[in-house]
Simulated assay, not measured.
Amino acid sequence: MTSTIEPVATAPELGIHPDLSNADYHADKTSLSSSGARKLLPPSTPAAFRYEQDHPQPATKTFDYGNAAHKLVLGNGPELALIEHDTWTTKAAKAKVTEARERGAIPLKQHEMDMVTAMAAAIQKHPLAAALLDPAYGAPEQSGFWLDGPTGIRRRVRFDWLPSAQSGRLVIPDYKTAADASNRVMQKEIEKYGYNQQADWYEEAARALGLGGDDAELLLIVQEKKAPYLINVIGIEFGSRIIGGAKNRTAINTFAECTATGIWPGYGDEPNYLALPGYAENRDKEIYL
């Protein structure tokens, strides 16, 4: 896939931008974000990354729930529009949903609004989560841009919550919703969604932007989307963050090369010879060979 990145005339300057909108943050396609870095690596491809950058994906219910919870928990985000129809199959309901999305709002049914409201209330009752997201000591949705030293590419970050300047260790909370926030499930989610890469990216961003020392740390505040809306505050172990950093460096180098050449490869132009999965090969060798 051959494609060049057109410079954005209004690309944000380097540094922290407290009031930059989410739309303007994502509009800068000349910079690389943490989620973009993860999309550049297998099992995805640079071609898939470039396509998604050029063709934003439509809203889904999963993202609606997450964004709505972010709005009420963090106090920043799109309007929540209550659509007072039990089903959205009628012409009147569809019209209201369409109108809400066109103005940038998140349409919700009454039970969905009740759910995200209860989730926000549960956060306030959790001692650690409430302390990490205390509006007296931080602000939501803070964007930052900086230059990568080894490659010179623009990198970007959007902190869910950025604590106010203070002495001591900088702890950066990142709020997520999940069906199951148990340790057993979240250990798999860290690998599945690359949260160890996110931790390294955000911690490096904090250092590059002059927000904290070498000991800045990301903590995930993961909340379940079913009553009683349990919360698990999770840190990423050091070794996993080191692996995340190595993967990020590979992604950054890939972005720099693709940007320079205008070539965003997919799975390759030659045959890829694949073996059986290790467990299947060992099993079948025992039985058939």
Rank of each mutant, 00 (worst) to 15 (best):
L219F: 10
I243K: 14
K226Q: 14
D215S: 05
G245L: 08
F238Q: 12
E224I: 08
L230H: 11
I242D: 08
P228N: 06
F238E: 14
L218D: 08
N248G: 01
K225Y: 04
I236E: 05
A227D: 13
D215I: 00
A227E: 15
Q223L: 10
A227V: 09
I243A: 14
I231E: 11
K226W: 09
K226L: 10
E237Y: 07
F238G: 00
G245K: 07
R241K: 15
A246M: 04
A227S: 14
A227Q: 13
I236V: 15
I242V: 15
K226F: 09
G239F: 06
L218F: 06
I236L: 11
G245M: 07
N232C: 03
V233D: 04
I234C: 09
E224Q: 15
D215F: 00
E224T: 15
A216S: 13
V233M: 07
G244C: 08
Y229D: 04
L230Q: 13
R241D: 00
E217A: 12
Q223A: 12
N248H: 01
G235I: 07
L218G: 05
I231M: 12
K225R: 15
L219S: 07
G239K: 11
L230T: 15
E237T: 08
N232L: 04
I243G: 04
I234L: 12
Q223I: 10
Q223T: 12
I242L: 14
E224A: 13
K247H: 11
E237F: 05
F238H: 13
D215N: 10
A216H: 01
V233K: 10
K225P: 00
G239T: 09
Y229C: 07
S240Q: 14
L220A: 06
F238Y: 09
G244N: 10
S240F: 02
I242R: 13
P228G: 05
K247G: 02
I236H: 04
N232P: 02
L220T: 01
V222S: 06
K247M: 14
D215R: 00
K247F: 08
P228K: 06
I221E: 06
G235K: 15
I231C: 10
V222A: 11
D214S: 12
V233Y: 09
E237S: 12
I243H: 11
V233L: 07
S240D: 14
F238C: 00
I231Q: 12
I221A: 09
L230C: 03
K247T: 06
R241W: 05
L218Y: 07
Y229T: 06
G239P: 03
